[in-house]
Design a protein around this nucleic acid. Structure first.
Length: 290
DNA sequence: ATGGGACTCTCGA
DNA sequence: TCGAGAGTCCCAT
């Protein structure tokens, strides 16, 4: 009966769907020794198993089982080992605005000058709004130069996410403004609308070191992974993997700057600022597209 | 100065 | 295999 509604849902699942999906991912992976069956998960989530399976597959393009495989150690290790990472293909100009191709989303980015960074965002006018995304509720922040922030929040944690983000540029002026954010919201998570002719403008606000790290992240194509130490090597500081980890963790533009594609050398996912389950969700979702 | 990681290695069990 | 502990480096305050 509501075929059109269902179809719309395929493109961007509602928050409710992500809640279900993330619940499944969490249960599937929390104790991988005895991976709970679909039936038992469905039982715990009080859903019909068939329906659950369908929702999940529609969302990720992968069955729960295939999804889990895509996020395991072995898979990650294979991706790391295979083909030399193309990360070295471009030498990045340090410092200010370097536009470029980059990333399947076709991002053009510019970096804030050190002066602007030191001002803690003073003089910056930032508009923000929450939107539904395939990975739960997303908080978008934009300046007139482009997208500067993208965060995620579980239900009830919107305030916390907002504090987290506004705290990064304490001197900036923030306005709630759904309309300003709307043009970005739709196409970020919809790969059908990723096109080179219409690149997504991103502005990176951070220290020089952080910007170098984030630019490296932008070089990781969809479906590929990269280790923290690879990034350290690529920016010419091979021993700074730990500092790289810290910088990756401070990435203000989650997902668009694909910090979820950075993992430990062992193939373990290590951490994610917005929750490991969300990192798994992104990697599994991308595994189906890559 | 100092503290503290979204790291990595090395061992022991 | 797995996990704890220590080493290390560089950012942030």
């Amino acid at each position: 009966m509501q075929i059109t509604l269902d179809k719309a849902k395929e493109i961007i699942p509602a928050d409710e769907d992500y809640r279900i999906v993330s619940g499944v991912i969490a249960m599937l992976t929390e104790d991988y020794r005895d991976q709970p069956s679909l039936e038992s998960i469905a039982g715990r989530m009080k859903r019909d198993p068939i329906e659950l399976q369908k929702t999940f597959t529609r969302w990720a393009g992968l069955s729960p089982k295939a999804f889990l495989q895509a996020v395991t150690l072995d898979h990650a290790k294979r991706l790391l080992r295979d083909e030399n990472l193309p990360l070295l293909e471009t030498t990045l100009e340090l410092g200010l605005s370097s536009p470029g191709r980059l990333h399947d989303l076709f991002v053009t980015h510019e970096a804030m000058s050190p002066g602007e960074w030191k001002a803690n965002g003073r003089g910056l006018d930032i508009r923000y709004g929450f939107v539904a995304s395939p990975f739960g509720k997303a908080l978008l922040m934009v300046t007139d130069r482009g997208l500067c922030g993208l965060a995620f929040a579980d239900p009830g944690e919107e305030e916390e996410a907002l504090r987290d983000m506004t705290g990064r540029w304490p001197e900036a002026i923030f306005h709630a403004d759904e309309a300003a954010v709307a043009p970005y919201a739709g196409r970020i998570f919809d790969e059908a609308r990723w096109r080179a002719e219409e690149p997504l403008r991103v502005v990176l606000i951070g220290t020089d070191f952080q910007i170098r790290v984030w630019e490296q992240l932008l070089e990781i194509p969809l479906g590929r992974l990269c280790t923290y130490s690879d990034i350290a090597t690529n920016i010419g500081m091979p021993k700074a993997s730990r500092a790289v980890g810290a910088a990756v963790g401070r990435n203000p533009v989650s997902f668009v700057v694909p910090c979820h594609r950075a993992i430990g050398k062992s193939g373990a996912l290590t951490g994610y600022h917005w929750g490991l389950t969300r990192k798994r969700a992104m990697l599994g979702w991308e595994a189906a597209k890559g």
